[in-house]
Nucleic acid binder design. Structure first.
Lengths: 243, 243
DNA sequence: GGAATAGTGTCTTTGAGACAATATATC
DNA sequence: GATATATTGTCTCAAAGACACTATTCC
């Protein structure tokens, strides 16, 4: 039987602490990176953890996540306000924090390549790590990160989320590299191009003749993210899907 | 700045109540139904709400969800233990409950057509409602239910979840009806059949010559759910996708 | 036989994947 | 010119969708 069969009985509820944890990804030099913070106190002192913190009394979880993201990256509230934050899952195992009962709402965020975290406060102890061959993380954050990675990879198949990893203007080669990095596969360039351009609203060409070079080949045309949110039909990964 | 910049400070956290809410679906007479409970107390007294309740001190959210599901449906713990519970999202708006700060972890569950909820306790005030043209629900449960419906529809595309709506042995016509009901579309029977049978592990034929009739046509062969969890490639909806 | 449902076969169109060929830049 | 990258074009194959046709039951 529930503790409050008639609905919510204010005397029956068990108090929990509720936090948000963020899996913040970026693609840097064709490798996936994750933002981690060093723990200053026990437990896991000196270890690395996902950025996050408590939800304040008058905040929703998403507001808390944006606030924490701004604190840890030094980005302005305005910039952070425009990003897509993906709520992943909520982690509730009774012993996931050894000190008390903590429930954590996990979010994933995708950022274009940024300079090292700057700004004061929490950002001081934050840095980017390459996502593969990370050591163990504090608490169940390794698990959260793995779930986040799976979700992002799956979402790439049927949403336009990948453009969030790119700067405001980007080439199709850069967008393709994002896909290849996140999925860990190589894609055929002509086919990728055809597919992206055939999807209305995925990307839109940047006007004038401005172009940009990635090295010493032919300069590529620039695009920006389009208005669409979903991919239609999906851009399927070469191999399997995630259930 | 976070309330606890050094990690979790047991003196800084704000206590929340944490509940689970369940969107329990079934298909009955080719129409989607949802399990709702009548509220016995304020607020929303006499209104209808999703089943759910507080997480107990030593429970995970999923354990709480299974416990509540067993209570509300009268199903045994064993039966409920074998079902797929899909964690949807966590709802955290500060004023979603007028009395106190309540965070709710929402789950979706799919059941084959069952008799009306039986058993004692909470089940007494629970009943199935047809999903379309429901009135307003208590709290933000209307929103939760809409999100649950979207998620289930999307999951049908690339998982074998639809078999959870069917009894242990079912015909392909019944399975197709489940898809048609959830998606609200008509599917071509020969194509559906070809697609399902071509997906390894989706369904497996039941041995002997036993067959079953749905009315007065030719009896259909029986199948049971296969071992696969994911559909490969996906079974896409005729129209659009959910972002 | 007629109606209803189950199941098979076939044709067409669409999209994915492989890959050749061309274009434009740097060195 | 050599090399590197971008872009276009073409061919093939697999899957989706439309739909005609056969099979088996109840009335």
């Amino acid at each position: 039987m529930s503790a409050a069969p008639e609905g919510y009985d204010p005397h029956a509820f068990v108090p929990f602490a509720v936090t948000v944890d963020l899996a913040v990804f970026t693609v840097r030099e064709a490798r996936l990176h994750v933002l981690l913070v060093e723990r200053g106190g026990e437990p896991y002192k000196g270890g690395w953890a996902l950025p996050g913190g408590f939800i304040l009394p008058r905040e929703s979880a998403e507001e808390a996540a944006r606030r924490e993201l701004a604190e840890e990256t030094g980005l302005t509230q305005d910039t952070v306000g425009g990003l897509h934050l993906e709520q992943l899952r909520t982690y509730t195992e009774p012993d996931r924090d050894p000190r008390m009962r903590v429930v954590s709402v996990a979010y994933a965020a995708l950022l274009p390549d940024l300079p090292e975290p700057r700004g004061g406060g929490d950002a001081a102890r934050a840095r980017w790590w390459e996502a593969r061959d990370l050591g163990d993380l504090a608490f169940d954050h390794g698990r959260i990160l793995a779930d986040a990675y799976d979700r992002v990879g799956a979402k790439f198949e049927y949403t336009c989320l990948a453009t969030q990893f790119c700067p405001a203007e980007f080439t199709l080669g850069e967008l393709q590299q994002v896909y290849e990095t996140v999925w860990g596969v190589e894609l055929d360039r002509p086919n990728f191009r055809r597919k992206v351009l055939a999807t209305p609203g995925f990307v839109e060409a940047v006007e004038g003749p401005p172009r940009r070079t990635g090295g010493r080949g032919k300069p590529a045309a620039l695009y920006r993210a389009g208005a669409a949110a979903a991919l239609h039909p999906p851009l399927l990964r070469p191999e399997g899907r995630t259930g």
